[in-house]
Amino acid sequence: MIKRWFKEFKNLGNEEIEKIPDEERREFLKIGLIITGVFAGGSLLSVVSKVAEGLATPEELKNNYPYKPHYSMVFKIDLCIDCERCVEACNLTNQVPDYGWRTMILERYSSKAVDQKRIFLPILCNHCNHPPCVIACPTKATIKDSQTGIVKMVSYKCIGCKTCMTACPYNARYFNEERHAVDKCDFCWEKRLSKGITPTACVEACPAGVRIFGDLSDPLSEVYRLVHQLGKPVWVLKPETGAKPNVFYTIS
């Protein structure tokens, strides 16, 4: 029992930078510097530090991305226009009540900003590799799926202690009265992915191509290409919490 638990715990924290060979690490620190130099909001280093462009063989990829498919989402945030079609599609698909949300658009506004004063920032569950909510749940009512890496709810086990809500650094969870359980984004697993429908409802609804969904372990996928390029900054939200999110932000 304990052994299994320990293994699970180890699997959760699968991307320690300490284990990277020196050379690769140097390369990556460079990239990290470039990125953090541009965007103070966080760096790519925190999640995919092991995979430098051109270095990863499929074998290494398998080790770096333990899930297959390793679902991930990338946002080109400068394209977001807050039309909220994604939110509407999500609410409709997943029967999200009016008092809750699984995805929302934040508005960043600064009157002091040079030039454009406003930018929209879509948020949803980050499906972290080291999810604070999963660690905190007393009854395994929220789990990290061992196949896909999706953080799912097992609603009937939820006792409603709301620890996962306080644990989540991203405000991605709310208590759903109809389900008698905490509810959150599951990358449309229940309503679409499990039935073979891709992509998620929000990605399908987006008219501006802000949201890109795919398998981060597949070098041919668009999310892979967006995350592993150096030309544009790529970052994650709140890297300091160590949650290692699988939702990335970049610009078009």
């Binding site: 749940c137 395994k140 939820c158 008698h180």
Partner: peptide
């Protein structure tokens, strides 16, 4: 607790040992 009675069941049958709660 929103579902206190579920706790009695799942605390026993679905324990999460990483959870301080």
């Amino acid at each position: 607790l929103e579902n206190p009675f579920r706790m009695l069941i799942w605390n026993l049958f679905s324990p999460n040992l990483t959870s301080n709660i």
